[in-house]
Design a protein around this nucleic acid. Structure first.
Lengths: 239, 239
DNA sequence: CGGGTGTTTGAATAATGTCAAACCGAGTGG
DNA sequence: CCACTCGGTTTGACATTATTCAAACACCCG
């Protein structure tokens, strides 16, 4: 089912939904250049949203956790500039893109929620941009990891473990932070030697969260909240 | 008047609008930490949207030209993470924030357009992020200037001048690109020596646009369009 | 046991930042 | 009209940060 959905008028979206989809780690949900005819709600697993440059370099612009809404392109006909790749096996809830705007016109609650989802995504991307544009490698790393931890905490309802699974390779971290994979490695080593954290074999253990948060300069935290990033139709039939 | 508005049901927004506002260069439309009670449509002038880090550094996340919609925060109560500063004297159309969501619920066309505006802003910010995260100083500069030129072309209906006013100081360019102002200067010198462009006293003259676009790796162009980024209520009462 | 992918490290190099001084042009008060 | 100041630009010398290349290593999987 569409777990991350919430709210009353779930039925509207239920009937609208095309079905679920399972993808293996490494697969692309969609790729740059495509004309996307679907929309997705990420039910389970991790997905990275990225841009491809003609130089061959890749910039990861978002790390999507369960509850994320993926693939909304404002201009139907225009091909996508970004792609979405599965970091893990992934479960998606699939909607048709074409009729979506019509549905949104019928249920103002839906389109308003969509606007808010996009607005939150914008805030998060601004955060990411500020991170990459204005901080040192060490700070970027700390900020990224803090953001991910916050996302997991939100999702997984208080898993207070100090040991978390992070299915990112070091070069993917580099692609997210605008650093080479080699330097990512050195940065992680420094964090390890400072007894801040240990990231090993896809598992993150935080030893000194206070220090980590300090490096991350939290305070310009990403958007968050009890608010999901997925869609429901709360006030659907409302005037 | 609210020049950048378009579409039929202008009246709805007209009655909704609080009024116009003129601000001098250097003023802040709003500042980080504020709880914003207004929304803005940029009628005339240039505005930069930025994040402030506790280190004191600043990251410019967007350069807004006339037609931009500013200040939409999805969560009413939450204080803003970003600010908006006028680069030039500026004219704004002001709307009340509080009742905006209600209006959007009444006119689905409005909220859907809002969603698309936010989605386009997201795409642009992803573009900016990819620029800062994955390109060299020279390429970043080229990309930024190309993006600005494209924006001006869109706005000013084919001003084919090769001489354009760019009211950005070199350190502001640095804040946008994640570079020091000194290095911005050297980068501009290089572009000048390569006969690509001359940026002097707030005036940009492009000598070799092809080369500039090549450096900018256009192809992952920012969103554009005949589509304004401002709001109208086209299909307002549409069911 | 072998191969592949990801990690770790060192050494050399390139890109960019910092500091400090000089310069330039526009406005301002004498 | 001049001298001054101020914000912005330009340049040089130098420090630092991050990249590249290359090799060794570790681990998982078949």
């Amino acid at each position: 089912m569409c777990r991350p959905f919430r709210g009353s008028a779930l039925d509207v979206l239920q009937s609208f939904k095309l079905g679920d989809r399972i993808l293996p780690a490494g697969a692309n949900v969609y790729s740059p250049g495509q004309e996307l005819t679907e929309l997705y709600n990420l039910l389970d697993g991790w997905v990275v949203v990225y841009r491809l440059l003609v130089s061959g370099r890749r910039q990861i612009v978002d790390i999507a956790l369960p509850g994320s809404f993926l693939g909304y392109q404002p201009d139907l006909a225009r091909p996508l500039l970004h792609g979405a790749e599965c970091l893990t096996d992934v479960a998606l809830c699939v909607f048709p893109r074409r009729s979506f705007d019509d549905l949104a016109m019928q249920y103002p609650g839906l389109s308003l929620q969509l606007a808010k989802i996009q607005a939150r995504a914008l805030i998060n991307t601004q955060d990411h941009l500020a991170n990459v544009g204005a901080r040192s490698a060490l700070e970027r790393m700390a900020h990224l990891l803090c953001t991910i931890l916050a996302g997991l905490r939100r999702e997984g309802a208080s898993r207070s473990d100090d040991l978390v699974e992070i299915p990112l390779t070091q070069s993917q971290i580099g692609e997210a932070l605008g650093l080479s994979s080699v330097y990512v490695n050195r940065t992680l080593r420094e964090l390890r030697e400072e007894r801040v954290l240990v990231l090993k074999g896809g598992r993150l253990r935080v030893l000194n969260y206070a220090r980590l948060a300090e490096l991350a300069e939290l305070g310009s935290e990403p958007v968050d909240g009890r608010h999901t990033t997925s869609i429901s139709v709360n006030g659907a039939a409302a005037r």
